[in-house]
Simulated scan of single mutants.
Amino acid sequence: MHNEGTPRYDGPLELAKSLSALSQISASGTPWNREGLRADSEYRDLGLATVTNGRIGAKHIRALNPFTEPTGWHWHDMTAHYLYVLRGSVTFRFAGLDSDVTLSAGDGLSQPAGVPHNVMARSDDLEVIEINEPAVFGTWDLAEPPAPWK
């Protein structure tokens, strides 16, 4: 696939005119925080939101406490949502699927953006990288499970 077709833009680009900023993060420079969706986890921003002007977000997420019950059915107003499991496992249910989806260390999942889902289980040692578009998004709970989980 090298040098095939027409590039999407005129290039190569000078660093000052790049389509995203050059940014390196370090583990010591990006502290963990509790400012995420789940109280039983902590989050570390990987810096993509800043360098893409909010187009893409990336977080390193790890479990803090045992998982005691499913999250409940909800959806996010994203246009893309990807999860990569570094450690442990996680099990989802998605609207429109009639079986659970379980991921283990080394597995990745392109979650169907905007589709209701429910996290049914996760290991106590779960660590994931989550990439989403856009970086900032909303989450809405459903009053009742969607098909086929009613």
Results as ranks from 00 to 15, higher is better:
residue 14 E to A: 06
residue 15 L to W: 11
residue 15 L to E: 15
residue 15 L to S: 14
residue 18 S to P: 02
residue 18 S to L: 00
residue 20 S to R: 08
residue 22 L to T: 07
residue 23 S to K: 13
residue 26 S to F: 08
residue 26 S to L: 01
residue 28 S to G: 07
residue 31 P to F: 07
residue 37 L to G: 04
residue 37 L to E: 06
residue 37 L to F: 05
residue 38 R to V: 05
residue 38 R to M: 09
residue 39 A to W: 10
residue 41 S to V: 09
residue 42 E to R: 10
residue 42 E to C: 14
residue 45 D to K: 03
residue 46 L to C: 09
residue 46 L to M: 15
residue 46 L to K: 05
residue 48 L to N: 10
residue 48 L to V: 08
residue 48 L to T: 15
residue 49 A to T: 03
residue 49 A to Y: 06
residue 51 V to K: 13
residue 54 G to E: 14
residue 55 R to Y: 12
residue 55 R to I: 05
residue 56 I to A: 09
residue 56 I to C: 03
residue 58 A to Q: 00
residue 58 A to D: 05
residue 59 K to Q: 10
residue 60 H to G: 01
residue 62 R to L: 04
residue 62 R to W: 07
residue 63 A to Q: 14
residue 66 P to I: 01
residue 66 P to A: 12
residue 66 P to E: 12
residue 69 E to P: 00
residue 70 P to C: 03
residue 71 T to G: 15
residue 75 W to L: 07
residue 75 W to H: 15
residue 75 W to V: 03
residue 77 D to F: 06
residue 79 T to M: 01
residue 80 A to E: 06
residue 81 H to N: 08
residue 81 H to Y: 15
residue 81 H to T: 00
residue 82 Y to W: 15
residue 84 Y to W: 06
residue 86 L to P: 02
residue 86 L to C: 05
residue 86 L to V: 08
residue 88 G to L: 08
residue 90 V to E: 15
residue 91 T to A: 13
residue 91 T to M: 11
residue 92 F to A: 09
residue 94 F to P: 00
residue 95 A to C: 13
residue 96 G to F: 02
residue 98 D to I: 05
residue 99 S to K: 10
residue 99 S to L: 11
residue 100 D to C: 09
residue 101 V to C: 07
residue 101 V to G: 04
residue 104 S to M: 07
residue 106 G to M: 05
residue 109 L to T: 12
residue 110 S to I: 01
residue 110 S to K: 01
residue 116 P to S: 06
residue 117 H to K: 02
residue 118 N to A: 05
residue 119 V to F: 02
residue 119 V to L: 09
residue 121 A to W: 05
residue 121 A to P: 00
residue 122 R to Y: 11
residue 122 R to W: 14
residue 125 D to M: 01
residue 125 D to E: 06
residue 128 V to L: 10
residue 131 I to H: 02
residue 131 I to N: 10
residue 133 E to F: 11
residue 134 P to W: 08
residue 134 P to A: 12
